[in-house]
């Protein structure tokens, strides 16, 4: 037996031991087909739980369908619900409440979150402890937060009223955070800020930590003041992250439901009735499925449109 035959024999064995290519095993399918095969389950799932419900909701929004009357005839109403919603002063009032809530919370949370991030970015004693403490509210369930803040705001026994009373000298029972039309929206903003400012802080912190040290070192060499460094380096370079935080909080607060529902239920009167509370009432209390589908589509288009405009602005900032 010579070397050549040994090599051939070994090559044959190796060839026998090697599994056939994937293409051969699946009956001659091309790479593209196999790729489709792999992503098909995901696409089917996506179609089933996202796309189909969206299309179905769009269809329902043109009908008088009510989920609590499955046997009733479904009539095609055209754009009646859309016209009705867009001309309904109560819906516009709810949209205004939502807009005020979104703007107020975003402004407060962004300012506070960024300031906290700047503070946490510095190295100091107990740094880890304070970071954990600040992040705690974010880790709580909104149901828990809503319930315990309801107690904190209670005019007769609530700690919040006693704290305000201690600072201002006002009697604790003389003001009602959840029952007063002028204070209730602020009560919700306070709770939302308490819970979600740490989230904004985390994103801003990521932005601050992504700024390379050499830029500051160069600024030091150029004798730029700390204030100048902040305005010319820190803020512009962290801006995309801040804008991202604003986008996330904006979308979240636009569809805010749980906290408002637990704290005020939309009251007093309709003072804190944000769009999602109105939508829930129409969909699951009045069971006006067609109407609420149209309302949901309008909300979706609004958020989607605003988010798209915002993302374009964000991309422009990132490119600078």
């Amino acid at each position: 037996m010579n070397d050549t035959s040994t090599v051939r024999r070994l090559a044959t064995r190796a060839a026998e031991a090697t599994p056939p290519p994937v293409v051969a095993r699946v009956g001659g399918l091309g790479d593209r087909a196999i790729a489709w095969l792999f992503i098909a389950p995901t696409i089917v799932l996506l179609l089933a739980i996202n796309i189909f419900p969206l299309i179905w909701t769009i269809y329902l929004s043109f009908t008088n369908f009510r989920a609590n009357r499955p046997n009733a005839a479904v009539e095609w109403l055209g754009t009646r619900w859309y016209t009705s919603i867009l001309t309904d002063p109560d819906i516009w009032a709810a949209m205004q409440v939502t807009a005020r809530f979104v703007v107020a919370t975003i402004v407060i949370q962004t300012v506070l979150g960024f300031l906290l991030a700047v503070l946490i970015d510095k190295k100091f004693r107990g740094h880890g402890f304070w970071t954990t403490l600040i992040l705690l509210p974010m880790m709580l369930s909104p149901a828990v937060v809503g319930n315990f803040w309801t107690f904190l705001f209670q005019p007769q026994i609530g700690l919040f009223n006693y704290a305000v009373s201690f600072v201002t000298g006002l009697p604790p029972s003389s003001f009602q955070m959840l029952g007063d039309v002028s204070l209730a929206p602020w009560a919700i903003a306070i709770v939302d800020t308490w819970m979600w400012t740490p989230y904004v802080m985390l994103i801003c912190l990521a932005g601050l930590r992504s700024i390379p040290d050499y830029i500051y070192e160069a600024a030091e060499v150029d004798r730029a003041s700390k204030w100048r460094q902040f305005w010319s380096i820190t803020l512009p370079m962290a801006l995309p992250f801040i804008m991202l935080a604003v986008l996330f909080r904006g979308i979240e607060n636009f569809k805010m439901f749980d906290m408002v529902n637990l704290l005020t239920g939309g009251g007093p009167g309709s003072t804190t009735e944000v769009a999602s509370i109105s939508l829930k009432r129409e969909a699951f209390e009045k069971w006006r499925t067609g109407y609420s589908s149209a309302f949901a589509i309008i909300l979706f288009v609004t958020v989607f449109g605003l988010a798209n405009i915002y993302v374009k602005a964000l991309n422009r900032v990132k490119q600078r």
């Binding site: 109560d90 029952g179 039309v181 009251g267 007093p268 009167g269 309709s270 003072t271 009432r281 209390e285 009045k286 069971w287 006006r288």
Partner: peptide
């Protein structure tokens, strides 16, 4: 009845509690 009830909840709460 739910539509009728929710309307009354809103109108009366707006007037009585919110003072509108």
């Amino acid at each position: 009845y739910a539509d009728l009830l929710l309307a009354m909840q809103k109108r009366t709460h707006d007037y009585i509690v919110a003072g509108q």
